[in-house]
């Protein structure tokens, strides 16, 4: 399978109703990283993620994947998981069917559920699962698709610490299985735990793009330094 990475983004912009939500963002995304998009609320993190994933069309700049048909090799997990009114297993099977997966879809779906620890809940209606379980199910659904790149938009923003831990464990496991991770968070602790690379976004602009260690040890911008210190940015 050819890799869709690296992704090359140049001067990306997104303007809606005269408001520049994202402006002049250039970045390169290499295979194998766990990239965290960090920044205060309203920085444009979610919009950037949707632009990269293709849910939004940029109003300026270019976005180039290394291989054609890149969309088929990406998956995204949203802040609030959207589950169909059917069993947990059937939700994953639906994703596989839509992706055109042939043959062993049932086995693949069950394997994905087992990996996130939801095997025993396979036949439960997905919408009555707890928030944390639904988010793990969303991860299992993404995992079953075997994406090269997994986007996550604030995947733990509405979860308690235990559920957050479980979700983070799955993210790390998916990364170890070969997926490149790109996730947004406004939680510095989570960024410290998960990031290998960091994109710091502020008011729609990419302020810093550095390895995580360097970012936390010595942020180059005043905004990032203030954000790490826990000051309020707007």
């Amino acid at each position: 399978m050819t890799s869709i990475l690296p992704l090359s983004v140049r001067d990306l912009g997104f303007t809606i109703a005269g408001h520049e939500v994202i402006q002049g963002v250039s970045l390169d995304l290499a295979a194998g990283s766990r990239t965290v998009v960090l920044g205060p609320n309203g920085a444009g993190k979610s919009v950037l993620l949707r632009l990269l994933h293709g849910l939004l069309q940029p109003t300026g700049g270019t976005l180039r994947w290394a291989a054609a048909d890149a969309r088929r090799h990406q998956a995204m997990v949203f802040q609030r998981p959207v589950m169909l009114r059917r069993s947990a297993l059937a939700n994953i099977r639906f994703a596989l069917d839509v992706a055109g997966a042939k043959g062993e879809t049932d086995a693949r779906a069950r394997l994905a559920l087992d990996r996130v620890g939801l095997g025993p809940l396979a036949e439960r209606p997905a919408r009555v699962l707890s928030g944390g379980e639904q988010q793990r199910l969303a991860l299992a659904r993404a995992w079953a698709l075997q994406p090269q790149v997994l986007f996550l938009d604030e995947p733990t923003a509405s979860l308690d610490p235990a559920a957050t831990r479980a979700v983070e464990d799955v993210i790390v496991a998916m990364h170890q299985a070969g997926a490149t991770i790109v996730m947004t968070t406004h939680d510095i602790g989570q960024a410290r735990r998960l990031a290998t690379d960091l994109l710091f976004l502020h008011q729609g602009r990419l302020i810093e793009a550095t390895p995580a260690e360097a970012f936390f040890a010595q942020p180059r911008s005043a905004e990032a330094a203030a954000f790490i210190r826990g000051e309020l940015l707007w």
Binding site: R50, H53, L55, R71, R72, A75, M76, F78, P81, V82, F94, A95, V98, A99, L145
Partner: peptide
């Protein structure tokens, strides 16, 4: 409204 992004993300 609720399902759009998820379904489009799945390439439906």
């Amino acid at each position: 409204d609720e399902y759009r992004e998820q379904l489009l993300s799945l390439n439906a």
